[in-house]
Simulated scan of single mutants.
Amino acid sequence: MDEINLLIIVTVISLFTSLLLAFFLITVKTKHKTSNYLFAFFLLLTALDVSEPLFNLLVDAPSNLGMLRNTFAFMQIPVFYLYVVSICYSDFRLKAKHLIHLLPLIIASAVLIPRFYAVDFASKVNFIENRQSMIELQFNHILIHIQIILYLIAVFTLLKKAKKLYLENYSGTSINSYNWLFQFTSVLTILYLIILVKNILKFSDYSEISDWIKIGVLLSQLFIICWYLLKALNYPNLFRTIDSKLQLVSHIISEEKSNDNLIPTEKEYDKDLSKLKNYMLEEKPFLNPTLTIQDVAASIQIPVRDLSLLINHKLEQHFYDFINAYRIAAAMEILQDATKNNVTILEILYEVGFNSKSSFNTAFKKHTGNTPTHYRKRLINSYL
């Protein structure tokens, strides 16, 4: 099987899978329609991008439609960015301001109007035949890679902020989703870097190597998308937990200082800390797996801002870790009780407020240096 036939086969498989998954996302019943629509649109744009070998079989001459198909690649990474925003923040809505993300596509299309879109067929042929020296294509080539780099930086920055906001305000298990999404974006970044190399080779004397890389990219892209969708569909509640109106504690402190507002005094901190500890020991709110800092603040009648400063800044401990410390202490009490040796680790983690075995094991090892199973075995051996 030669290179061209293999490329066509891989393209057909990739197109079919992307279109099928996009159709599923659009038609499936869910309350998170915006996120599904955005990722479906991303898949459709990806399908349009990889369709080049098939498109060239059907239309073997330069055309406005073919060039437009190429420039639509400028929409891929912005749509992915908006998708990440939509799954990080529970109150995300598409607004007119998001049309700003179309600017690179508009610029890329505009520069092609004078010497491609607005000229006759013969001029189009001449433009494509001399594409390596055409300043418009060189400009667009540089623009799309600058765009990809900037948007990927924006995605990583967004995920870093979202994760920190989660740690400062929530105590559930969704923190794992940000770690996983960070890994997915890292894989996507590597893929885009490979595509960058492919595009550089495409405009060089090594175009055949570029075609082989394209086959590898198509297969990798197909695998990555299927892997991501499988994860997201199996765990639909991993995301969409953060209110975008929340502020990082570092920003709150900066605002307090710039506005000359008084941060609570040591005496006020001690009073609030005493109230907080009594509440945690007596009411055991940490047993609630979805506990938030807003819930605690309402229960002990301390402003959320002050409570956040107390835990996340004064105690130098994220709310997430603060709550997990109590959960782990409760789990250790159960594990140390010889009469409860028949209680499984799974039963214990649910009883103390966790709802994920991986989160429980990670938190337990962070606080004790051992996994729950190993900790129990050591205790049993000490009794013998």
Rank of each mutant, 00 (worst) to 15 (best):
residue 52 E to H: 07
residue 58 L to W: 14
residue 71 T to F: 01
residue 46 T to A: 09
residue 292 T to S: 11
residue 182 F to H: 04
residue 4 I to Y: 13
residue 55 F to P: 02
residue 238 L to R: 09
residue 222 L to I: 00
residue 194 I to E: 03
residue 363 A to Q: 10
residue 127 F to S: 00
residue 36 N to R: 15
residue 29 K to W: 09
residue 365 K to L: 07
residue 21 L to I: 14
residue 257 K to C: 04
residue 248 L to Y: 07
residue 218 L to K: 10
residue 101 H to S: 07
residue 207 S to W: 10
residue 5 N to E: 14
residue 182 F to L: 06
residue 384 L to S: 08
residue 77 I to W: 06
residue 252 I to F: 01
residue 64 N to R: 05
residue 250 S to M: 05
residue 159 L to S: 12
residue 112 L to P: 06
residue 73 A to K: 11
residue 163 K to T: 05
residue 221 Q to C: 00
residue 213 I to C: 06
residue 313 H to C: 04
residue 279 Y to R: 02
residue 39 F to T: 06
residue 185 T to L: 10
residue 141 H to A: 06
residue 49 D to G: 09
residue 220 S to E: 07
residue 29 K to I: 04
residue 9 I to Y: 09
residue 88 C to Q: 07
residue 47 A to K: 08
residue 335 L to C: 11
residue 150 L to G: 00
residue 99 L to C: 10
residue 19 L to P: 01
residue 22 A to T: 08
residue 128 I to P: 03
residue 253 I to Y: 00
residue 382 S to M: 12
residue 154 A to G: 03
residue 248 L to I: 00
residue 374 H to P: 05
residue 90 S to W: 00
residue 40 A to D: 03
residue 374 H to M: 08
residue 48 L to N: 15
residue 282 E to R: 01
residue 237 N to E: 15
residue 73 A to W: 02
residue 379 L to V: 11
residue 247 Q to N: 04
residue 269 Y to W: 13
residue 256 E to I: 12
residue 308 S to Q: 10
residue 200 I to D: 03
residue 28 V to S: 09
residue 248 L to F: 05
residue 3 E to Q: 15
residue 306 D to C: 11
residue 254 S to R: 13
residue 171 S to P: 01
residue 315 L to I: 05
residue 353 G to F: 07
residue 137 L to K: 01
residue 305 R to Y: 02
residue 332 M to Y: 06
residue 216 G to I: 05
residue 374 H to V: 14
residue 354 F to T: 01
residue 98 H to Y: 01
residue 10 V to N: 09
residue 356 S to E: 06
residue 218 L to P: 02
residue 106 I to E: 10
residue 293 I to L: 13
residue 158 L to P: 08
residue 49 D to W: 11
residue 67 M to A: 00
residue 281 L to V: 02
residue 208 E to N: 13
residue 48 L to M: 12
residue 274 S to E: 10
residue 67 M to F: 08
residue 58 L to C: 03
residue 326 Y to A: 03
residue 151 Y to A: 06
residue 126 N to T: 12
residue 152 L to E: 05
residue 184 F to H: 05
residue 47 A to G: 15
residue 6 L to F: 13
residue 237 N to D: 14
residue 172 G to N: 11
residue 261 N to L: 08
residue 112 L to D: 01
residue 3 E to R: 14
residue 370 N to E: 12
residue 70 N to H: 13
residue 134 M to Q: 15
residue 140 N to M: 03
residue 211 D to I: 07
residue 77 I to C: 04
residue 30 T to G: 09
residue 208 E to R: 13
residue 210 S to Q: 03
residue 96 A to I: 13
residue 190 I to H: 04
